[in-house]
Computed example of a mutant assay.
Amino acid sequence: MTDTRVAVLVGSLRADSLNRRIAENLRDNAPEGVTLEIVEGLGDLPFYNEDLDGETVPEAASLVRKTVAEADRVLAVTPEYNATMPAVLNNAIDWLSRPYGAGAVVGKPFAVIGATPTPYGGKWAHEHTQKSATIAGAQVVEHIVVSQSAMEGDILADEAVVAKFADAVQALVDAEPTA
C-alpha cells in the first residue's frame, strides 16, 4: 500500500478544543503508511465571496486549497454549534468547493467525526457537513460517521471511544475513490 495523506478540517478554532485534541490524537497515532495533516488557517479565511475568488485569491484560501488538493482523503473533525456545523467549517467547504466542479475536495473520499457535550454528540452537524461536502463534490463515505457524546468525562481516556475514531480513519483510508 502506498502512503495515504488525509487532510483534517477541524471545525473548532479554540486551541484546546476537544475536537482539535481528537484530531491531534489521530494524527499522532496514525496507522503505518498514513499521514494525517491538520489543515491550519481555517480561521484566517475570509467569508467566501466570489468577488475575492478571481485570478488571485486570498493567501489563506490558496494555502487551504493547496493542502487539501494534495491530500488523498479529507476528514472533518467537528463539534456542533446550534444544531449545525460551525461557520468556520462551512466557510472552508465553500472555499474548497470552488471553482465549481474542480475544487480541492472534488472526488476525494470524505468522512466526518467529532464530539460535543450533548446527548447526540454532534449528529446534526455531521449530517450537515456530509450534505455540504457532497454538494461541493466530495465523495462522502456515509457509513463513516462518529458522533460522540462528551457529556461524561474525558472521552480521549476511553479506549473504546478512541478506537471508534481510529476505526473511522482506517475505514476512510480503505475507501476506494470512485472518480
Rank of each mutant, 00 (worst) to 15 (best):
D51S: 12
E127M: 14
H128V: 14
T178E: 12
V141P: 08
N25W: 01
L89P: 03
G33Q: 01
V173R: 02
A175S: 15
Y100M: 13
V146D: 09
P31T: 09
M151L: 15
N29S: 08
F165P: 00
V8I: 08
M1D: 10
I38K: 00
P86A: 14
K108E: 03
E55N: 09
R65K: 14
L13C: 12
A125R: 06
W95F: 13
I144K: 03
A111V: 08
A87I: 13
I38M: 06
E176D: 05
R73T: 13
T116S: 15
E176M: 04
D51C: 14
P99R: 07
T129R: 05
Y81H: 15
G122W: 02
D28L: 03
L45W: 01
A83R: 14
V173P: 10
A163T: 14
N91S: 04
V77H: 06
G33I: 05
A30R: 05
A102F: 10
R27P: 00
G54E: 02
P99N: 09
R27F: 02
P109Q: 11
L89G: 04
T56G: 09
P119W: 11
N49C: 09
I22F: 05
V6K: 00
V39Q: 06
V74K: 10
G122T: 05
G54D: 08
H128E: 11
M1W: 10
P86H: 09
L42V: 01
A166R: 05
L18N: 07
A115Y: 01
A83K: 10
A7N: 06
V161P: 05
V141H: 08
A160Y: 02
L36G: 05
I38A: 13
A30H: 05
Q148H: 06
P109N: 08
S132Y: 08
L52K: 11
Y100Q: 09
P31C: 08
M151C: 12
T56I: 06
A125W: 07
A83Q: 13
V106H: 12
N82A: 11
Y120G: 01
A166I: 03
D94H: 07
A61R: 01
D44L: 08
V140N: 01
L36E: 00
T67N: 00
G114W: 01
P177K: 13
A23G: 06
P58M: 03
A92E: 01
E55R: 04
V8N: 02
A138L: 07
D94P: 06
R73Y: 12
V6C: 03
T4K: 08
G41I: 11
Q148G: 14
T2R: 11
A60M: 13
N29F: 04
A83F: 15
A7K: 04
G11C: 05
F165C: 07
K131M: 11
N91W: 00
A15R: 15
A76L: 07
A61E: 03
Y81R: 14
P177D: 12
V105D: 07
V34S: 04
V10S: 13
A83G: 00
G121T: 06
V64S: 12
W95E: 00
T4W: 08
L52N: 13
Q148N: 10
D72Y: 06
P177Q: 15
A150Q: 00
Q170T: 15
A61N: 04
D3W: 08
Y48M: 04
R5K: 12
A138K: 02
A87V: 14
L9C: 11
L18S: 02
A125V: 11
E70V: 03
A15D: 11
P109E: 12
G33H: 02
D44I: 04
